[in-house]
Design a protein around this nucleic acid. Sequence first.
DNA 1: AAGCCGTGGAG
DNA 2: TCTCCAAGGCT
Length: 369
Amino acid sequence: MDGNLFTSHLLDWYDANGRDLPWRREPNPYRVWISEIMAQQTQLDRVVGYFDRWMARYPDLQSLALAREEDVLKLWEGLGYYSRARNILKSASVLAHAHGCVFPSDPIAIRALPGVGAYTAGAVASIAFGLCEPAVDANVLRVFARLLDLDAPVAETGVRQTVERTVRALIPEDRPGDFNQALMELGALVCAKRPRCGECPVRAHCLAHARGVADSRPVLPPSRKAIRIEMATGVLVRHGRVLIQKRRPGDVWPGLWEFPGGCVEPGETPRQALAREFREEVELVVEPVEKITVVAYSYTRYRVTMHCYRCRLTGDAEPVPVFNEAAEGGFVLPAQLAEYAFPAGHRRLIEFMERDARAAGWFDAGRHD
DNA sequence: AAGCCGTGGAG
DNA sequence: TCTCCAAGGCT
């Protein structure tokens, strides 16, 4: 491959077709870092809104160093992979104490930050500091699987190393960040899962295209099957306040809030499962009295059908929840639910109840006590 | 190293 | 409806 010609074709295309993204307008290290963490396993179009809100709230490292985890998780709500947000806070602490709130330019120091792996370190080093470091993400792997017609599964570590070496040899000293971004942009817009070779600025350099096998690259590993599960969750209102609890570290969605509930076990109905979960989780005896809605959502490899019920206490005793499987919890006003970060499925339940509130009155105090 | 961590859009 | 999979990292 003629490296110089390849690079100029690619950069010319990027200059004409690269998207106008907020962190590209002002690529200081802090902004580039945040954008790259947000972009992990997330399509850029979804990142933009979160990025803008983040920068309005935490415009620099100094302001981030004072941030509270609750607020950061709320800002991150819906973006997924919440450990990224917690790792940003851990990094902020490191950057404040060990680096005096000056973002380090040394790739090794960048790579040492929590949540920063080989890709992100290379991206920040090249985009923010102009260093000739490769940034090999899924886009770049796919692009080079086609350029080089690699017949090994791209998930293999050997393939990544091959691609990193190749990229390192191609990076132009005057535009390392643009080169890396151009490779990714090409993968996102042209050399996508279904390639659009007719629009490709570097198809003359592409072995898979020359051989007519671009559609069968990259070679993918066998996929894991989705697991379907049924869950039940309950809305318990008392004196106009609704019971929620905060998930513990080590759980799925650590630090996020939810309504009590859990998996429907074999042989159980959703209502039975819900009564059992309330006993186990919060030591309250409740009865599901009314189906609110069914929310279908998915996380990682699970496909969840969540049956949502309005619950009432059986018995007259004042409820004192004991949070056996949560970090904390309590009864909060429905209007306050907006201040807590919920997993997407529970957030959709809240939105359903708010939309439906006038007709159904899910949160009406007099209806439930 | 293989499994886990979220979510929503594309096809 | 259902599968695939994103500007990955951690354990």
